[in-house]
């Protein structure tokens, strides 16, 4: 939510600057900058997005619908939703716990923990996937033990979920840490002095104060969970109908020259992203409003 409030703050700021002749930029500067950014937006963001939908519907509605109800596509959509449904709540809990530990306690290795939270951002997703293959794969550390006990992780759903959890871990924690740091401990101290237990303090004081930031982090986390390609691709094994997520399914279809079907599935992903963006904008608006009253 730090980002959200900054956005709204700068909007007010811009309004103030614009309204006064003394601080207003020349029209030429304004329109040049505006034109550059709009052109960039149109070419690199809007055009591809439109292209996805145009290509998806090129061969008509029937082909589009057929591509989506095809069993492999349905399985891919289901798997993507399952992975998101498991990894988002997990990262919600991990993220809150990590942010809580970092902002409310003093301990050795705190800076190390902060650095490690960012690891999934800095490491290539392919490496992240590879880590799981090396640890849980047939030739990996736990491979023999796992196969003995008939547990499949790599090239199966658990592997995909693990990779997704890894890649999306930082979103919630990264969003909460600056927010909770800025809020300090005073309200929690007040709650404890008034007799609240740890859980009560969290539920009645901490959580309501960070709820918008938390929601914002969850939305970003969810967007990445559904769209992740690299890490999932390594651990998936690309078994159709079993371990293909939507991004992987799109790739397979595309490689098989089934462009219309590929774009149809891609359009669903794009749609999910758009819905996420709308929710995110709404949360930002609410968070900005909450900050002012």
């Amino acid at each position: 939510m730090a980002g959200a409030t900054v956005l709204h703050g700068s909007a007010d700021h811009a309004g103030r600057f614009e309204s006064k002749a003394a601080t207003r930029e020349p029209a030429l500067v304004k329109w040049t900058i505006l034109a550059v950014s709009l052109a960039f937006f149109a070419v690199f963001l809007l055009l591809p997005l439109v292209a996805v939908f145009v290509e998806a519907f090129r061969k008509g509605w029937d082909t589009y619908a057929a591509a989506l109800v095809e069993p492999d596509a349905v399985a891919a959509i289901k798997l993507t939703l399952t992975a998101a449904l498991i990894s988002v709540p997990l990262n919600l809990v991990f993220g809150v716990a990590a942010a809580w530990a970092i902002t409310k306690f003093e301990f050795r290795g705190k800076h190390l923990l902060i650095t490690f939270i960012d690891l999934p951002f800095s490491v290539s997703p392919v490496v992240a996937g590879l880590i799981y293959v090396l640890v849980f794969g047939a030739q990996g550390w736990f491979g023999p033990w796992l196969s003995e006990h008939d547990v499949k992780i790599v090239f199966a759903v658990p592997g995909i979920v693990l990779a997704t959890v890894f890649v999306t871990f930082p979103f919630v924690a990264r969003e909460l840490i600056p927010l909770m740091e800025a809020q300090g401990r005073e309200e929690e101290e007040a709650a404890v002095v008034l007799g609240a237990r740890g859980w009560q303090t969290f539920w009645h004081v901490t959580l309501p104060n960070v709820k918008w930031g938390l929601l914002y982090g969850v939305i970003l986390c969810n967007a990445r969970a559904m769209g992740e390609f690299g890490a999932v691709s390594v651990v998936s094994g690309h078994i159709r109908g079993l371990t293909n997520t939507m991004p992987l399914h799109v790739e397979i279809l595309y490689n098989e020259y089934q462009f219309a079907a590929a774009f149809a599935v891609a359009s669903v992903l794009a749609l999910l992203a758009l819905v996420t963006l709308v929710i995110k904008a709404w949360v930002e608006r609410r968070a900005g409003g909450a900050g002012h009253d």
Partner: peptide
């Protein structure tokens, strides 16, 4: 703290 039965008023109020 919660068993000490003290009332504490913070400098910056710390209202919820």
């Amino acid at each position: 703290v919660r068993e000490r039965q003290v009332g504490f008023v913070f400098q910056h109020y710390a209202l919820f």
